[in-house]
Amino acid sequence: MLAGRLEIASRTFSVREVPEPEPGPGEVRVRVRAAGVCLSDVHLIDGSLTPMFLGAPEVTLGHEVAGEIDALGPDVTQWSVGDRVVLQAGQRCEACPNCRRFRDPCLAVRTRGVDYDGGWAEYALASQHTLVAIPDTLSFEQAAIVPDAVSTPWGAVTDTGRATPGRPAGVWGVGGLGAHAVQLLRLVGAAPVIAVDPLPAARERALEFGADAAFDPADPSLRAEVTALCGGGLDVAYDMAGVAAVREQALGCLAPGGRLVLVGLTPQPLTIQNSIALSFREQQVLGHYGSSQDAVEQLVALTRFGRLDLARSISATIPLAEAGEAVARLQGKQGDPIRLILVP
């Protein structure tokens, strides 16, 4: 089968033929119908990110995956061949103290397409406990992006950032994660929802997705405008870009007691120019990664009942064989995509 493989030492990516995987005990084999291309995939290829738990010299990329069950391994009883499923973006390590004591959260989550083979392939293996059924009304393309592009901002909005109805929230960076953060903040009732992005097209998109206002970060009056609109500043701000300057600007727009949630990933150092002000105003800087185990199922339910529309999120579908081109398009922000989808 075809698979998009990354050799870690050299950061060499290629789409090539590899053996079809066989499901082991408790596993299923999924015929991949759609796989998302995430900025994290780009960072793995360019070396900005390195797998923490990968026990092999190379890995099949892809942590946003949807398809049909093709084969069942031994001891799989709750799934059937032909079931439409989306795959969780990771799985428990089964070795940390919390896993041994059946507690949440796992302290060393393994990420699909990073720490073990993912879904940029014609077939992918998955533990039966990492599958979520999807209805016929949800396309594979839309389902595929739920496990990260939608569930990560969902976790940031509802858990880490604790956004609340009627309270102001801001989103810096309206790309694959930020566009959904805007949509989800509106869904939970945050108000006003403010978006900040240097690209005019991204600001327009933010307004279409439900933002109450959208600003250019280069606007010298941004802080004053945000403060005036929110009546004193933001309750919570989300850095979806992973950029140092973004974090500094977002901190400056927080109200007393406000929270800055770091969602965008970057190896660059985190600096706070005035930590005295941060302490005096009792503000917080919070790291965020992924989402709770229930998030994907919650979001699938929201789409099923019409609360969440992901149709606008699919910017283009691209053959798996052209995965390298998809990576280049996302890296260069060609067409300012929300999500590009690989189709085997």
Rank of each mutant, 00 (worst) to 15 (best):
E282V: 04
R29F: 05
S291H: 15
G161N: 08
A156M: 06
P344F: 07
V150E: 02
A126K: 06
V109E: 14
G173W: 10
A295F: 05
P153A: 06
A179F: 00
G118K: 01
A181K: 01
L6H: 06
Q284Y: 12
P168W: 04
I134P: 02
P74V: 12
V42I: 15
A143E: 01
M52S: 14
S139D: 08
E141Q: 12
E94W: 14
V296Q: 03
F102M: 12
T160Y: 07
W172T: 01
C253N: 13
G290C: 11
I314K: 07
A3G: 11
G170Y: 01
A143N: 01
R33Y: 03
A228E: 15
L54P: 07
G324L: 05
G306P: 09
K333A: 13
F215I: 00
G90W: 06
C230H: 00
R186D: 10
P21A: 06
A56M: 07
S221M: 08
G178Y: 02
G258N: 03
L2T: 05
E225V: 01
A201Q: 14
D235Q: 14
T12D: 11
V343F: 00
W120D: 08
C38F: 02
A214D: 05
V174N: 05
G324S: 06
D216P: 11
R11Y: 05
E297N: 08
E208V: 11
F305Y: 14
L229P: 11
G264L: 03
L54S: 04
A326Y: 06
V171G: 01
A245I: 00
C99G: 10
P135R: 01
I69Q: 03
R31E: 14
G82R: 06
P319Y: 07
C253Q: 13
A201L: 13
L286M: 14
V114H: 12
I318E: 06
I194T: 06
G242N: 07
A143D: 06
R16C: 12
A321W: 03
E322Y: 04
M52K: 15
G178E: 02
Q298R: 15
E282I: 03
E27P: 00
E58K: 11
C106K: 10
T317M: 01
W154H: 07
P269G: 09
H180S: 03
R259W: 00
R339H: 10
Q142E: 15
L138A: 06
R312P: 13
G242H: 09
P256L: 03
A149Y: 03
F140Y: 15
A144R: 07
D41F: 01
V226H: 05
A301E: 14
V150F: 04
V15W: 04
V42Y: 10
T158M: 08
